[in-house]
């Protein structure tokens, strides 16, 4: 199995998976979602994760996002073994280092765009004034200046996803995990979203791991990992669009 990422000089192994296995259920009914994954993602990388449904990519993303823990093997985030952490400690890891973008946006209904963006800062106990100014900056960075008071139902899908990206980016996370971020969008909106992600990756050096099944979206990433039946089937470098 290929464990080498794009090991550039000065790059820092941010994420390491060593023989990660995930089994759901026990005995006869046991379902092996992951069968020994070895993976390394360095700081500043933009990685696309592909594979058919049931291939283990979602399980892998859940583990990467510290939402789940491996059954066997080790997942090291900045050298910390996440599998040994409690639920609360993993929540704190997410709070301080990770950003999430979901396929279905997952914005809070009947809550203004700005308040949605402020949400992760509330959990970081950032005072209201600073929170507001940072959320406004993030809204501007995703090109939604002037839409702050709109609620999700008043925004288009592309705009909603941009609010979600602003929400993920407002904390300046080390890693942005995006699960099918363009899954619900047409090609024009998809391109806008991908351009946005690429900019964050290149300008701010934020590491992005993105699940997609669209090859045209995957090419925005510099590296593509393909899952099949719970193992990494192939890895390839691409030039990256941008």
């Amino acid at each position: 199995m290929n464990t080498t990422g794009s090991k550039g000089i000065g790059k820092h192994p941010l994420i390491e998976m060593l023989g990660v296995t995930k089994v759901y259920g026990t005995g006869q009914a046991a379902m092996h979602a992951l069968r020994g994954i070895n993976l390394r993602i360095d700081q500043g990388e933009f990685v696309a994760v592909m594979g058919p449904s049931g291939s283990g990519k979602s399980t892998c993303m859940n583990i990467l996002g510290c939402l789940d823990t491996p059954t066997a093997g080790a997942y090291l985030f900045e050298g910390i073994s996440v599998g040994k952490l409690s639920r609360g400690q993993r929540a704190l890891l997410r709070r301080h280092y990770l950003g999430f973008v979901f396929q279905g946006y997952n914005l809070l209904n009947r809550t203004s765009a700005l308040e949605n963006v402020e949400l992760p800062l509330i959990y970081r106990a950032i005072p209201a004034g600073r929170r507001r100014s940072r959320a406004l900056e993030a809204m501007e960075a995703v090109g939604l200046k002037g839409w702050e008071t709109h609620t999700p139902s008043e925004l288009s899908g592309g705009q909603q996803q941009r609010v979600a990206i602003a929400r993920a980016m407002v904390t300046a996370p080390m890693v942005l995990l995006a699960d099918e971020p363009t899954g619900n969008l047409d090609s024009v909106r998809s391109k806008e979203i991908m351009d946005l992600l690429t900019t964050f990756n290149q300008k701010q050096g934020i590491t992005i791991v993105m699940v997609t099944h669209d090859p045209e979206i995957a090419v925005y990433a510099k590296r593509t990992i393909r899952f099949l039946d719970g193992v990494i089937d192939s890895e390839e470098q691409n030039g990256g669009v941008g």
Binding site: R95, H96, F100, G104, L119, Y123
Partner: peptide, 16 residues
């Protein structure tokens, strides 16, 4: 439920 899931994902503790 989804809202709770989102909150937990972006760093809310059980306590929160």
């Amino acid at each position: 439920t989804r809202e709770i899931g989102t909150r937990l994902a972006i760093g809310a503790l059980e306590r929160d």
